[in-house]
Design a protein around this nucleic acid. Structure first.
Lengths: 233, 233
DNA sequence: TCAGTGGACGAACAGTGTTCGTAACACGAA
DNA sequence: TTCGTGTTACGAACACTGTTCGTCCACTGA
């Protein structure tokens, strides 16, 4: 039986949760997981919260601030090892593996890591401090630790970004195949040998080798760092 | 003396150069140099060419294609050393220094290097081949060369990107100072020692140390790679 | 109860990349 | 020279984005 025509409909607003920065960040991450970073617009997040984009600005100053908060939230769950001087090398690896894993678990967040000028969220700072602590425990000067930490961080972020472009659905497999063909055609159109090495590396770059590649890069960085100490560590 | 009122004004169109992909790319780079990457919109480039944005699409398929062409153009002038097995290490350094230099000479182009899925322009491929050749000359297997080349490339692009954010006017010095303050305030608000290392690294990161930092990272990578060969190279 | 404050949010703005349709131009053939 | 065809040039319009401004509502404290 329908309501009588004079019945006032219930106030719609009462059914919605009160907005908060935490809720907006969480919703942004939900949208990221479901649809990728490009879908994370103020309108899309607002839509998921059943409101309008302008409502978000009472809680986050800009779109950029929102994605930065999202990044820091992702870093929150990355475990940071307590420094053990005997194992500094393994611990550094553990830490960056964990960071890579967190970024891979959130498609597109690696891109945010690049867009943010200097990550100064609590968790980003915590990470920086942990890296420095590990390297200091390993016997490096503060300067060496700072430089090495920067290089390791850059490499990991770069690797995460590169990897995320392939695993997130951000890249159309059709486009990938097309690019591959274009590249092969171009290289084959030149005199034999012009790209003798390039034409043979394709097999090394696929999802199955990602872990191995990342470790290889870490080993390069940490092996070189150890060599600078003149000690085989 | 003014022209007579019945004089037909010259046809405006005849005064403009005929559009071409090369001209558009060059103009895009001009805008990049003068105003940074964010200013490189189809409208801005078209404006510089005294036309409308739609005109560009007869020569470049998309905005993305335009910036990719710009990147490849920048890489064109980077010298590639002919491999010398005795000097592979120095030569790799030379090559990546040159690449970094080219990117720093074009504010914002490092960002394009990230946005492009897989650079397949002629010059990007040339670079890849050159790196592999140098590493092969150094005695590494194709797989090692491929992995190492990737890591070196990632690191260099990452460093270029990080550096370009500070040197290009893309970053507002006011914002930088503000962030620095926020970061310091936050760290100081915590119990003493929470960020014992982080609070002391600021002095190592400025424009004056950029070259040293880049070399440090390269030395880490190449030192570690040499160590993998079991030879001190 | 009233005044002040902060949150919610629609309407509108400015900017972006791109498409569609039309006009102009260039070129080759008759 | 004229005509037909293909290509280029490009304005108008579209869809989408981040953001601001003004208005309304809810809550709190005096």
């Amino acid at each position: 039986m329908s309501d009588p025509a004079w019945r006032t409909p219930p106030v719609r607003r009462a059914a919605k949760p009160r907005l908060s920065q935490e809720l907006i960040v969480r919703t942004g991450l939900d949208v990221l997981l479901a649809e990728g970073l490009d879908a994370v617009s103020m309108r899309r997040v607002a839509q998921a919260l059943e409101t309008g984009p302008a409502s978000l600005y009472a809680h986050v100053a800009t779109k950029d601030e929102l994605v930065e908060l999202m990044l820091d939230r992702v870093l929150e769950d990355v475990p940071l090892p307590a420094p053990d001087p005997e194992r500094w090398r393994d611990q550094v690896k553990e830490l960056f593996r964990a960071q890579l894993g967190a970024m891979h678990a959130h498609p597109g967040i690696a891109r945010v890591a690049w867009q943010v000028m200097v990550p100064v969220g609590p968790n980003a700072l915590r990470h920086g401090e942990a890296v420095l602590s590990l390297l200091r425990a390993g016997g490096f000067t503060l300067k060496q630790a700072a430089y090495a930490g920067d290089a390791l961080s850059l490499y990991t972020k770069a690797f995460a970004y590169e990897g995320s472009m392939w695993s997130t659905g951000e890249v159309d497999p059709e486009d990938v195949a097309k690019r591959g063909r274009q590249m092969t055609e171009y290289m084959d159109s030149l005199p034999a040998g012009a790209f003798a090495n390039m034409t043979r590396t394709g097999e090394f770059f696929n999802a199955g080798t990602a872990g191995e590649r990342f470790e290889f890069g870490l080993d390069m960085l940490l092996g070189g760092l150890a060599a600078m100490m003149g000690a085989d560590r």
